[in-house]
């Protein structure tokens, strides 16, 4: 289905602050030209932590679970989505691509992702903290 009117572009696109560089570098002075493109969608992303994990929420309404990919590249979480819209006479697509650099070491083999009501939740366990190890003193 084709969207003829886009009346309330308020939620995602006004956030020029680039989360991708949030932890590494100051945000770019000017918004990327990509953000002006109607077909590139910029979902709102939240990052939380608790004792054991980092938790990422991404609001990506309208995408099907199968149209979303979650990748982990070292400490960088990459969220991608691609949805093809088929109209009678033309086809177009809506996509998003965002990445989050996680602040600290993680366990990349225990990442869990779920998608519900248009919200993607990714839980990434933190690497176990270096616990003090007691060494027995032998005689």
């Amino acid at each position: 289905m084709k969207y003829l009117t886009r009346r309330q572009p308020t939620n995602g696109r006004q956030l020029w602050g680039d989360f991708d560089s949030f932890f590494n570098a100051p945000p770019p002075f000017l918004p990327s030209f990509f953000d002006w493109n109607n077909d590139v969608y910029r979902p709102a992303i939240d990052l939380f932590e608790d004792e054991a994990s980092y938790i990422v929420h991404a609001e990506v309404p309208g995408f099907d679970r199968k149209e979303i990919t979650v990748e982990l590249e070292k400490d960088r979480l990459i969220l991608k989505g691609l949805r093809k819209l088929n109209d009678d006479d033309e086809s177009s697509e809506v996509s998003f691509h965002r990445s989050v650099t996680l602040p600290d070491a993680i366990k990349s083999d225990k990442v869990n992702a779920k998608y519900e009501n248009g919200v993607l939740t990714v839980t990434i366990p933190k690497a176990e903290a270096l616990k003090p190890v007691q060494i027995e003193v032998k005689s």
């Binding site: 989360f19 992303i45 939240d46 990052l47 939380f48 608790d50 980092y54 929420h57 602040p103």
Partner: peptide, 14 residues
């Protein structure tokens, strides 16, 4: 509701 022990590191959603 967000669990109480979650710390917000970055928030864009309303």
């Amino acid at each position: 509701k967000l669990p109480e022990n979650w710390k917000v590191l970055h928030r864009e959603s309303k």
